[in-house]
Design a protein around this nucleic acid. Structure first.
Lengths: 164, 164
DNA sequence: GTAATCGTTTGAATTTTTTCAAACGTTAAA
DNA sequence: TTTAACGTTTGAAAAAATTCAAACGATTAC
């Protein structure tokens, strides 16, 4: 096996683990790594072949990746096949996906707090305070996420303008 | 079922889903919610009983939660049992756990970039740039995480000093 | 209009994760 | 020293997620 192939395999494996750690499907990570690695868009067949999976699950994974804005479809004028490539803003988009989870936690905390506050019972004192803390925590998180994203767009621009 | 119990059940379910979305065991979320809800520390038996699980899996989950600094053990002078309560800094600690994942991604990007840069081949141009982007992205993330955590400790102090 | 080439869907098979009950070991009481 | 009360470990059972091969439907080529 060539050095290239070794590195490629390693990256693919690593991405699989990383995706897994974040609660996503390992195969999603593999596909993302493969596409990051590839200078050209790849077809469904090429991807299945490369990762040694059948078309079925790969097709499903491609849908999930598209839903998350991590990849996108492109078309060759000469071919009837779909081709896929990485979304240029993949890291930012992955981050946004997690951001959505954070936001849903904020909403959850607020909603729970509202429900609990309606109750007369004193038993909820500990909980009320905790839910307030939770809400504040996630609100602060959201603020910093926003800051991060605007700073990142500047940073990213720098990387790619240099490389031209 | 009383209003209290209803709310409690709902919170427990919600936490289960949230934990799941982040790639953790649902039962971990349930235990955390139960302990957040509880004004008093709970024993292993009480937790198993409350969540209708046997001691075995709960014992294992408690270990995982302790490893992640989300709960802690306390002892009653009068009882031989272990009791558990939420770590006061649970949100911060959960955040730190994710932070560790981010850091491992930074390390991964750096390491991959180093490996790839050693290669003479031109085939890696796309990949090199991507890995640079990835490294920068995660470095910026780390910076903002740090900012967040220091700001949060101030914010949290405010919440709990007010409540006294 | 028919055949060929796609991507997607589906139900079954496999693999992995979760869960349990029982056995085990340890500590404290009797 | 024995017994009782714990928490943890373990191997098997149950549940859930992943994966596949085949069927399907839609679109393009002939």
């Amino acid at each position: 096996m060539s050095a290239e192939e070794r590195i490629k395999k390693e990256i693919i494996q690593n991405f699989g683990h990383a995706y897994r750690a974040f609660g996503l499907n390992k195969l999603m990570g593999h596909v993302v790594a493969l596409l990051i690695f590839s200078p050209e868009p790849l077809s469904l067949d090429e991807i299945s072949q490369n990762l040694e999976r059948s078309k079925g699950p790969v097709s499903q994974i491609m849908k999930r990746l598209r839903d998350r804005n991590l990849i996108r479809r492109v078309w060759h004028p000469t071919s009837r096949k779909d081709f896929y490539e990485i979304q240029p803003e993949i890291f930012e988009n992955a981050f946004r996906n997690n951001f959505e989870l954070i936001k849903s936690n904020t909403r959850l905390a607020k909603q729970l707090k509202a429900t609990v506050n309606k109750e007369k019972s004193d038993n909820f004192d500990t909980l009320k305070l905790r839910l307030l803390e939770m809400q504040k925590f996630y609100e602060l998180t959201e603020k910093h996420f926003d800051n991060f994203l605007s700073e990142w767009s500047v940073e990213r621009e720098k990387i790619y303008s240099k490389s031209k």
